[in-house]
Structure formats: C-alpha cells, structure tokens
C-alpha cells in the first residue's frame, strides 16, 4: 500500500465514523431519545471508543515503504541533439556510445540515467 493511499484510508475511516455518529443522532428514534442524557453520553462514549481504536490502529500500522521506481536511460544524438528514453539495462553508463540516431544517423550516447519521477510535486514552502 502506498504512502498516500494509507494516509487517505485513515481520513476515510475518520469520515466514516463521523457519518455513523451523525446517522445515529439523525435517526428519529435517536432524536426521541436524545432528550435522555444517558443515551447521549452512551453515543458519545461509542464515538470516543472508536476514535481511540482508530488512533491506536494508526499508531501500530506498518511504517510505509518507499515506492518502487523504474530507472530510465536517456540517449542523445551527438549531431542533432535528438533524445530517446528507454529502461535502464545493466552495463549502461555515462557517456556510453550506443547505436545510431534514427533521424540523422549520428552516434547516440547515454546522457543520463535516473529514476522516473513518481507522485505529486512538492508544494513550495510559504517561508
């Protein structure tokens, strides 16, 4: 499970709890009983217990593993600067010469080897 989906699951559970709580309060039977102080404290108790359970589950949940990334090799033509990207193969290194350029027959060389970017870009800091 990715970091984001785990984070979203926590919020989803919390939202579900609030909805259940509101549903209980919103039912006619519950409204009738709402006048009774004991019913209200019981409902509040259930809600509190569920919250404790949720936070405990979050506390003991597995630490998230870093996401898996593909490694890309970027090839550039020496003559016309055309680039092509493929998956990294063992034996690739910068600036290994490899093959001919499809457009000008110039020699291609490996310009860069880097992991593909995953996920959202970080927001700029406000300070």
């Amino acid at each position: 499970m990715s970091v984001n989906s785990r984070h979203n699951l926590g919020w989803l559970l919390l939202l579900l709890l609030i909805l259940v709580f509101l549903f209980v309060l919103g039912s006619p039977e519950a409204l009738e009983k709402l006048g009774e102080e004991r019913f209200f404290s019981t409902a509040l108790g259930i809600f509190g217990l569920l919250l404790i359970l949720l936070f405990f589950l979050k506390l003991v949940s597995q630490p998230s593993a870093p996401p898996k990334q593909r490694i890309l090799t970027v090839l550039r033509c020496e003559r016309c600067d055309v680039t092509s990207v493929r998956e990294f193969k063992r034996g690739d290194y910068i600036p290994k010469r490899e093959g001919k350029c499809p457009s000008c027959e110039g020699e291609m060389y490996i310009e860069a080897i880097y992991p593909e970017e995953l996920g959202k870009k970080k927001k700029p800091l406000p300070f």
Binding site: R38, F39, S41, T42, G45, I46, G48, L49
Partner: peptide, 13 residues
C-alpha cells in the same frame, strides 16, 4: 431506568 451501556463506558474510561 439507567443505561447499562453508559455504565460500562464510564467504568471503561
């Protein structure tokens, strides 16, 4: 007329 559950929760807390 007391609520049993309420008592259980109070005891738990």
């Amino acid at each position: 007329g007391g609520n049993l559950w309420s008592l259980v929760f109070q005891l738990f807390f």
